[in-house]
């Protein structure tokens, strides 16, 4: 089939099409990648060089002054906060979302349908309308401006429960029933039989949770104000809109943004297909 197509294409002047196709692809690849080249190159430039030659991919002279300043400033603190929060939230989400997803998929108990309907409704609530509500509840509970405020509201997410429920429904019942008949309790069946089979969904959820929490910005904006509780996005945003003001210190700001991007970039490079799955699963839940 393929050879037949190719032969026919060649007759139709496929060469021209191929060249045009590649030209477009390469043009767009440049558009999508070059900003990251600019980011990397300019973070290694001096300030006058960055202002004079913003497009050049080669720093002249090359300097790590921006990174030295970052590492001797608040940056390590933000990094530590981001790592702590992303890890705790990811572990929490993977565990709690899959527990709930399993219960909604498999266990028969009253109220199950109502709970699932509520979770679907919550998924549809746009995040931006929750800024003030979240602040109000954190304030009322007396946990505003604490690590608890940064972690607890993110610890479960409706979309994660949804993804896990869908996945558990797609795996065959037989193994679980066998385990149950062997006398395993519900939790033991879930933990030792079902979860190991759910590895692809768990990896997807782990990655989406980590990436989402790592990049999370508005929540930190309404949950804390103490600079010692800043995460990377909050700290980087503060560099830009805060004390340093606009228009200056670009190598420093770009360096901070670059370091904040690297962890997700590494995870993306390794687990790309899970990101793809996450994006298309998002499509299905619509």
């Amino acid at each position: 089939m393929t050879t037949l197509t190719e032969a026919r294409r060649r007759r139709h002047g496929g060469m021209v099409n191929t060249v045009v196709g590649y030209a477009f692809l390469i043009f767009f690849a440049l558009v999508f990648i070059y900003p990251f080249v600019i980011q990397l190159a300019n973070s290694l430039k001096t300030e006058p060089d960055a202002a004079a030659n913003p497009l050049s991919p080669v720093p002249q002279p090359l300097t790590t002054a921006a990174f030295d300043r970052l590492l001797n400033g608040d940056f390590p603190l933000w990094l530590g906060n981001s790592v702590l929060i992303a890890v705790v939230v990811t572990v929490g989400r993977v565990f709690l979302d899959s527990l709930a997803g399993y219960a909604l998929a498999r266990l028969r108990f009253g109220g199950r349908r109502a709970i699932f309907a509520t979770i679907v409704a919550i998924m549809a609530v746009p995040g931006v309308v929750l800024f003030i509500p979240k602040f109000l509840v954190l304030n009322q509970l007396g946990i505003y401006d604490t690590y608890t405020a940064l972690i607890l509201p993110l610890l479960v997410d409706a979309a994660g429960v949804f993804i896990m429920k869908q996945f558990f429904e797609s795996i065959p019942l037989s193994m679980e029933e066998a385990a149950r008949i062997d006398g395993a309790g519900v939790f033991r069946t879930f933990w030792s039989v079902v979860l190991p089979m759910a590895r692809p969904a768990l990896i997807t959820l782990t990655i989406l949770s980590f990436q989402g929490t790592w990049n999370e910005f508005p929540h930190t904006l309404v949950a804390v104000q103490d600079p010692s509780l800043y995460t990377l996005p909050r700290g980087v945003a503060n560099l830009v809109s805060g004390s340093l003001g606009a228009g200056t210190q670009y190598p420093l700001k770009l360096g901070a943004a670059l370091l904040a991007t690297i962890p997700v970039a590494i995870i993306f490079a390794i687990f790309q297909r899970y990101f793809v799955r996450g994006a298309t699963e998002g499509a299905e839940k619509g």
């Binding site: 190719e6 294409r9 496929g14 099409n17 191929t18 196709g21 590649y22 692809l25 767009f28 690849a29 999508f32 990648i33 900003p35 990251f36 600019i38 980011q39 300019n42 960055a50 913003p54 990436q211 790592w214 990049n215 910005f217 990377l232 996005p233 909050r234 980087v236 945003a237 560099l239 830009v240 606009a246 670009y250 700001k253 770009l254 901070a256 943004a257 670059l258 904040a260 991007t261 997700v264 970039a265 993306f268 790309q272 990101f275 793809v276 994006a279």
Partner: peptide, 30 residues
């Protein structure tokens, strides 16, 4: 007809997974 799909798909998709704050800084500079 085209080869290297994986690379191009990755290149186009990567910006979507980065931090909105970090990428805003890059565009502010650009």
């Amino acid at each position: 007809m085209l080869k290297g799909k994986g690379f191009f798909r990755t290149a186009f998709f990567f910006p979507s997974v980065t931090s909105s704050v970090a990428i805003s800084v890059v565009f502010l500079f650009m």
